[in-house]
Amino acid sequence: MIDELLARGASPIHALDARCRLTACLLLSLPAAMAQGLAAPLGILGLGLLLTLLSRPPLGVVLRRTAAVNVFVAFLWLFVPAATPGEPVWTFHGLTVTREGLDLALLTTVKANAVFFCVLSLLATIPAPALGRAMTALGVPAKFSFLFVFTYRYLHVIAEEYGRLVVAARLRGFAPATNARTYRTYAALLAMVLVRAYDRSQRVYQAMLLRGFHGRFPSLDRFRAGWPDKVFLCLMALAAALAAYGDWISRSGHA
């Protein structure tokens, strides 16, 4: 359920320095998210798809996640085309679909998918501990990275504990329905998970103090950015700049 299905691999993307991938992901997402015309996000979408192919992910995972992202997009298609004022294209039972509405829905779809494939290929391929260190290296407060790494570390433990409690409840005949009893049971399950998480955190912290923890983790593997990493980052920065420039040109062209 909460596995990093894409983080391990032997592809050229996985071989890149984690800091470079994180930076490249930010650089590419920015013009895609800010664009007002279709060209820039379409370009980034193409690049994102190419990067995703290069990272050689399991196809099933990609398809499932693409579907999940596009559920929200589909929800927008229900509302946006008819809610945007503009030139009517089609009228149906008092709802007027406008050209502007369709354009906005299409633009949103392309943007959402463009950023999605950048995140899928560049961010999801970084294992969480490496991402924590990459964030610190790029100036994110150390405490935040600490929280991130340990939240990830205990996610699986807590999920397992919750699973056990649910099984226990089910063995005792618990069947969820819309009633006070169900909500009380879930509240008790949840509170029990919190109590156990709290107790565990006390134990873990004491164990860390015992081993001499004083606020930072010395790590054995170092980041090393060689020339392929630098070339990759430069190329991605160039692509992002091109996309931003193209969008700016098309915007001033319309004005």
Binding site: I2, T151, S201
Partner: peptide, 27 residues
């Protein structure tokens, strides 16, 4: 937030991540 409480916040944050995956029936 000092380091004494950081671990607690991290593990509770994990518990909330898991808790927010709980689907409850509403009608």
């Amino acid at each position: 937030l000092d380091y004494d409480r950081l671990m607690t916040v991290a593990i509770l944050s994990a518990a909330f991540f898991v808790g927010s995956l709980i689907h409850v029936p509403i009608g």
